Amino acid sequence: DYYEVLGLQRYASPEDIKKAYHKVALKWHPDKNPENKEEAERKFKEVAEAYEVLSNDEKRDIYD
């Protein structure tokens, strides 16, 4: 669930989505996790995908 990936509720505002994305993206950035790079890359891609969908009103409506 994209909301879960970003740690958000379904009623999150666009500002909340952006803030959550930056927080979680920093947490899972591969450069910040050199000891667990493969998992970090996978999680970072999930976070980016979730943000791409939830930050676009049209894609978010379809997802919801």
Rank of each mutant, 00 (worst) to 15 (best):
E58H: 09
V47C: 15
V24Q: 11
K23A: 15
Y51W: 09
E46V: 07
A48R: 14
R10T: 09
D61P: 13
A12H: 03
K19Q: 13
A48M: 14
H29A: 13
D16L: 02
S55C: 13
A20T: 01
S55G: 15
N36Y: 06
L6Q: 03
D61R: 14
G7T: 04
L6Y: 00
G7H: 03
K37F: 10
R60T: 03
K37D: 10
W28E: 11
N33W: 07
W28F: 10
R42W: 09
I62D: 15
Y51Q: 02
P14N: 11
Y2M: 13
K23Y: 09
D61A: 14
K37Y: 13
A12M: 00
D57S: 11
K37S: 10
V53F: 13
Q9E: 14
D31R: 05
I17T: 02
K19F: 10
N33Q: 08
K19P: 03
S13A: 12
K43V: 06
A50N: 00
I62N: 14
A48G: 12
K43I: 05
E15K: 05
D57K: 13
E58N: 10
L8S: 05
H29F: 05
A48K: 15
P30S: 05
D61G: 14
F44T: 05
A50C: 02
E15I: 04
I62K: 15
R60Y: 03
K43S: 05
D31E: 12
H22P: 03
A12W: 00
E49V: 09
G7S: 06
Q9V: 06
H29S: 12
Y51G: 03
E41A: 11
K19N: 15
W28M: 12
Y51S: 02
Y3W: 02
R60V: 04
R10E: 11
Y3V: 00
I62E: 15
P30G: 07
Y21L: 00
V53E: 02
E38K: 10
E39W: 09
I17Y: 03
L6D: 03
H29D: 09
E58V: 08
I17M: 02
L8Y: 00
E15V: 08
D64M: 03
P14M: 14
K19Y: 07
K27M: 06
E49D: 15
N36D: 12
K59L: 09
W28I: 05
V5D: 07
D57Q: 11
D57C: 13
P34Q: 12
P14S: 15
F44Y: 13
D31M: 05
R60A: 02
K43E: 04
P14C: 13
N36E: 06
E46N: 03
Y11G: 15
F44S: 13
D1L: 04
Y21W: 13
A20H: 04
N56A: 04
D31V: 05
P30F: 04
D31N: 11
E35V: 07
D16N: 04
K59D: 08
N56P: 00
H22V: 14
L8K: 02
Y2Q: 00
V47R: 01
V5T: 13
E49G: 06
E52D: 14
V53L: 06
V5W: 03
Y3T: 02
D64A: 04
K37V: 11
E39A: 09
A12F: 00
P14R: 12
D61V: 13
L6I: 02
D1T: 14
V5H: 04
D1E: 13
R42Y: 05
V47H: 00
D57N: 11
Y3M: 00
E58R: 09
P14D: 06
E38H: 08
E58Y: 11
H22Q: 09
I62W: 15
Y63V: 13
Y3H: 03
V24D: 04
D31P: 03
V24M: 10
Y3Q: 03
Q9R: 12
K59C: 06
N33M: 07
Y63A: 05
F44L: 14
V53S: 03
I17H: 00
Y2H: 09
L54R: 01
G7M: 01
A50D: 00
K43D: 01
V24E: 14
V5G: 03
I17N: 02
W28H: 13
P14Q: 15
D61Q: 11
D16Q: 07
E49W: 05
V47T: 09
D16G: 01
E41I: 07
D1A: 08
E15H: 01
K37R: 15
E4S: 13
A48Y: 10
P30Q: 09
E38T: 11
A40D: 05
E52R: 13
V5K: 09
A50M: 00
Y11H: 11
V53M: 08
Y51P: 02
D1V: 02
N33T: 07
N56D: 11
H22Y: 07
L26M: 13
D61W: 08
E15N: 03
K37C: 08
E52S: 13
E35N: 12
V47F: 09
D1S: 13
A40M: 03
E49M: 11
Y3A: 02
Q9H: 09
P14Y: 13
E39S: 07
Y63M: 06
E49N: 08
W28A: 06
Y3P: 01
L54Y: 00
D57W: 08
D64C: 06
K37E: 06
A12R: 01
Y3E: 05
E46I: 11
G7V: 00
K37H: 14
K23N: 12
R42M: 10
A50Q: 01
Q9P: 13
L26N: 03
A12Q: 01
E49Q: 09
L54S: 02
E49I: 04
I62Q: 15
F44K: 09
L54Q: 02
E41L: 12
F44R: 10
Y21D: 03
K23V: 11
L26D: 12
P34R: 10
F44Q: 14
P30H: 07
N36L: 06
E15G: 08
Y11K: 14
K45N: 05
A48P: 01
L26E: 11
W28V: 05
Y63R: 05
D61K: 14
E15A: 08
A20I: 02
E4H: 15
L8W: 00
H29Y: 04
K19T: 14
E52K: 13
E4Y: 06
N36C: 10
E41D: 15
E38Y: 01
W28Q: 07
V24N: 15
H22R: 13
E52H: 11
L8E: 06
L26A: 15
E15Y: 03
N56R: 08
I17C: 00
K23M: 14
S55H: 07
I62H: 14
K32M: 05
H22K: 07
E38V: 13
N36M: 13
